Computed example of a mutant assay.
Amino acid sequence: MKYIIFDIDGTLTDTTEIDDHCFTRALSDTFGFQQFETNYGHYENTTDSGIIDQLFRERNGRTYTLAEREAFITHFCVLLEQSYAQDPHHFREIRKAGKILTTLCRQETVSIGLATGGWRQSALFKLQCAGIDITGCAAASFAQDAIARRDIIGHTIRQLNEKNRYEAPLSDIIYVGDGKWDYQATCQLGIGFIGIDNKKIAHLEDIIRLTDYDELFRHIDVAALS
């Protein structure tokens, strides 16, 4: 059995721009942070939990508390909801992502998981807005589960192993993502990587890039079902 694990922002949902906008505003509104790096790919851990942890340590000499985390998530989700009400266009799916996910979830030879650097609440909201059904996914991990992306992906792998009562070889695990941090995490874990073609991974060599989700089946050795 193969494991195919998907990132969310920029991979399943076309929400990276609005997510970054609301995240930046929530950092300022909730914690009073000003004049911080908003190119979030520059942080040690490009996850919601990792970014906040780094900013807290640099500015306050400590990490965030659970109460601070929950206050941030609540406000962040309110901002996302307000943005969706104003312009749903910012919450689209990546073309064909929902169809591919549903098709893969019907396969008996694969087990599908999610692993995102975003919070559970915000991730589920964006998927819902984009019309992507994840009920067939066997496992999912979010920023609440770890700070480093490799650990979030690892959490999903462990869930899949427990769900399937099977320990998949690393060679049979593929992560689909859209950022260099996704690729780096897969290298650290020793699993495969397939990238959604965009400028963030344009500099990476010798990787599989998808310009259309229909191409995915050619690279995972799984037949497409109608």
Rank of each mutant, 00 (worst) to 15 (best):
T116G: 03
L160W: 05
I191C: 00
G118C: 08
A123F: 07
R62F: 06
Y175P: 01
H89K: 11
F72Q: 05
F91K: 02
Q107P: 00
R69K: 14
F72S: 07
E68I: 04
L66I: 11
T103A: 13
N60Q: 12
E81K: 12
T74M: 10
T74S: 12
I134Q: 04
H90V: 02
R106H: 15
A168H: 08
R120W: 11
L114I: 15
T65S: 15
A139P: 07
A130Y: 00
R59A: 01
I94V: 15
T63A: 11
T109Y: 03
E162Y: 08
V78H: 13
Q184T: 13
G177N: 07
C187H: 13
E167N: 12
L124T: 10
N164K: 14
R120D: 12
A143K: 09
A139G: 11
V78D: 14
S111I: 09
P88Y: 01
K126Y: 04
L104C: 00
Y175F: 15
H89S: 14
T65G: 07
D178R: 02
Q188A: 13
E68M: 04
A67H: 11
Q188L: 12
Q159F: 01
A115V: 00
I51L: 02
I112Y: 06
A85I: 08
Q188Y: 09
L124F: 08
A185G: 05
Q121H: 12
R62N: 06
E58S: 10
A67I: 12
P169Q: 07
N161W: 14
E81L: 09
R158K: 12
E58D: 12
G50S: 02
G179F: 11
I147R: 12
L127E: 02
